[in-house]
Write a protein that binds this DNA or RNA. Structure first.
Lengths: 246, 246
DNA sequence: TGATAATGTGTTTAATTTACACATTAAACA
DNA sequence: TGTTTAATGTGTAAATTAAACACATTATCA
């Protein structure tokens, strides 16, 4: 919740012509899309950042973003940025929030729409061409350029919430994964430790995993069974109702 | 999740000058704010709509919206619209989603940010001056102008979800309310029937209500006790963790 | 003043979550 | 090659929470 300003109460609506005039002239604003790209590697949640090359933010890291083109759908812009930066095509992408403070950007008025993306680091690894583009452990992300810290915090928090209610997490894992991988993922995202036995029971009872009858290879310990996410099973059993609880 | 387009992978970032040029010239777009104002009256969830005066949408209802000014914070614009239309100052307001399809508005490219607002109809009643501004039962809302039906559906769905996890609902009730009022509210928002006894137990166990030791007045049945929402209690007891469940 | 229809308070049962323990298996190493 | 080690894999009992359900109480209204 935010606090309100005082304004005059008005009565009438505007004509199409008035609106067209406004739309075409004085009231236009630059719109950008910022992508918060999460990855999961070595049991850690990562985020992709790029070095800011603006003097004001010299040395600081920032999110991947670009301006929206006037003839481009908003979602399409988010995909364009992802494709440009990661080379990846079919990725999980979700709009999170729009940030529109007047002075948030040094280049002028830029309202930005934040998108959260989850990608599989294994698939992506070979596509980081730019030296100024790096994966960062989310635990060490602070002091980003612009208002990107706030944007990042918002997205991480939303990820933490959504990953508990929807099967998003699998986008960060390889197709085949062990239950240990899955638990590591949840522990990394939520930044908590969980009971291994209850964690397994929970996922088995949700009935959204398929046992692949394969074992892990080349692990320095007893290999675990491999599973895949079963979207059909999930769709059938998924929760309709949460229940009041706050 | 949406599907991706193909684009070239790029390596470099832009300079401040490049960005300034882009921000100041060709890439600007009209931005609007649309407010989905919910109210609760006669045990029904209502939404405030205004008659569209565009020929293309003659006779259709639409959400309350206006263009964002270049020197105006995004949140401030939402408050301005609310204040203009309802006369209300301190209202619950939350950004929901941004809609940015290229052809969503007949007047040209307009990206719109949707805000959900919850107001107390009792406080507001005297401020509807405009005849073309009306409360509508949400169950009868269909075929809105522009893409407003989609925006409305998104907001209603988000309200249904958030009202179960956070104490938003109280914004729709008077300061003093009975448990029957509260249950009617939840049943109206969620469009379900609930068990009266379990509903009461739930709210008592959440420990966020204060018994005012007052009774309802002028009701055509045995009066119920009146309560108010206790924000301090809520803050102390509120949930930190949801638990994985989908 | 009696019928009616709401409020207000349980209790019992089922389902879910939490806490916790032990057997099994493969890698690592002496 | 056998022993140690550190993981995987499974089960059970207790505690908490949610769901189903019944009855006494109180004010209104005919």
């Amino acid at each position: 919740m935010i606090t309100a300003n005082k304004t005059q109460q008005v009565k009438s609506t505007k004509t199409l012509q008035t609106i067209q005039t406004e739309v075409q002239t004085s009231n236009r604003i630059a719109l950008s899309v910022d992508c918060i790209i999460f990855g999961f590697d070595e049991a850690k949640l990562k985020v992709m950042l790029i070095r800011s090359d603006l003097k004001k933010y010299a040395g600081k890291w920032s999110l991947l973003g670009d301006l929206l083109f006037p003839d481009e759908d908003l979602d399409a812009a988010a995909y364009r940025i992802l494709k440009q930066r990661t080379g990846l095509n079919d990725v999980y992408l979700e709009q999170v929030n729009t940030f529109g403070s007047v002075n948030r950007h040094p280049a002028g008025r830029v309202v930005t729409v934040a998108y959260c993306s989850l990608i599989n680091v294994q698939h992506h690894k070979l596509n980081i061409l730019d030296n100024e583009l790096h994966w960062h452990d989310v635990k060490n992300v602070n002091d980003l350029a612009f208002d990107h810290q706030k944007i990042f915090d918002t997205c991480l928090h939303q990820l933490q919430k959504r990953v508990q209610e929807h099967p998003l997490g699998f986008n960060l894992l390889p197709k085949k994964f062990s239950l240990r991988d899955l638990q590591n993922l949840y522990e990394a995202i939520l930044d908590i430790k969980m009971d291994r036995r209850n964690f397994r029971k929970k996922f088995f009872s949700m009935d959204c995993l398929t046992d692949l009858n394969e074992m892990e290879q080349d692990v320095p310990h007893r290999p675990g069974k491999l599973y895949k996410f079963n979207f059909e099973k999930y769709e059938k059993k998924k929760k309709k109702w949460i229940g009041i609880d706050f």
